[in-house]
């Protein structure tokens, strides 16, 4: 029985999801009858031009926005609003400047009713997992952008979510830091056995991290497309297969 349950953890089904925004009196449709199954433990990347609704989709998954129609089903349960089985990593680290790094990492678990001592213990564990054990007592303003983002990741991992939702998590980092962080994220994803949904505008990041890539159409009447990335891990960015997937994705956007 236990096996079956762990197998089902972090499975997401989207059914006929639609969402429009009212902008200047006009209705702008960003998602139209979207159906999608996200497998337990997989890494799904969502790419699309700006305005294609990729961030909106992630915010609906996070429970920060409501869909106009359709539903989100997680582990066979329809969900509404935020939930304990999900954690979000934003583009900005969103750390509380008045709390130490450790307090920030423990924040999520404490808010969810974790015992302060227990939360601190677990926070320490995940802080060392992202390589920042020595910075537990530092304040956020003493950290570099990459370090702050690691703290944000540790905070999300500390609540041990089944599903990790990432909204362009490395979009604000410099190129070198970004590559390092992608490698670390892959290692963490494998170790923690968590379902990841990654919104990104970086196609190479999508090919490097994802099992499948969801391409949202540029043109609103088009259909979303799924591309399976069939490459061994850890992936080699210069390998022919990798480069080919990147080319394929670029072509989806009419680029070369």
């Amino acid at each position: 029985m236990g096996d079956v349950e762990t197998f089902r953890k972090g499975e997401i089904a989207l059914r006929d999801l639609s969402k429009s925004f009212q902008i200047g009196g006009r209705s702008l449709r960003v998602l139209r009858n979207l159906n999608l199954d996200i497998r337990s433990g997989e890494c799904l990347a969502i790419v699309g031009a700006s305005g294609s609704g990729k961030t909106t989709l992630l915010r609906i998954l996070a429970g920060l926005e409501a869909a106009d129609a359709g539903k989100v089903v997680i582990d066979d349960q329809p969900v509404r609003g935020v939930g304990n089985e999900r954690a979000v990593i934003f583009q900005e680290p969103r750390l509380l400047p008045w709390q130490t790094v450790l307090e920030n990492v423990a924040f999520g678990l404490e808010v969810r009713g974790g015992h302060a001592r227990h939360a601190n213990e677990r926070a320490r564990h995940y802080l060392s997992l992202v390589g920042l054990a020595d910075f537990a007592d530092a304040y956020p303003k003493q950290l570099s952008g990459g370090m702050a983002q690691r703290v944000g990741i540790a905070r999300a991992l500390t609540v041990q979510p089944e599903i990790l939702l990432l909204d362009e998590p490395f979009g604000a980092l410099d190129a070198m830091t970004k590559l390092t962080m992608q490698e670390e994220l892959e290692r963490i994803w494998r170790d923690e056995n968590v379902t990841m949904v990654l919104v990104t505008h970086d196609l190479e990041e999508a090919v490097y991290l994802a099992d499948r890539v969801l391409v949202l159409p540029k043109n609103r009447d088009g259909n979303p497309k799924i591309i399976e990335i069939d490459l061994a891990r850890p992936r080699d960015r210069s390998e022919a297969g990798f480069v080919q997937y990147r080319k394929d994705l670029l072509r989806e956007f009419g680029l070369h």
Binding site: V82, N84, A87, F90, R94, L96, V111, R112
Partner: peptide, 21 residues
């Protein structure tokens, strides 16, 4: 920063908790 408030909401913080923390 409303982004910090949103972050706290994601972790399920209640209104009093958001206020206090």
């Amino acid at each position: 920063d409303s982004k910090l408030i949103e972050m706290a909401r994601v972790y399920g913080a209640s209104r009093p908790t958001v206020f206090r923390r």
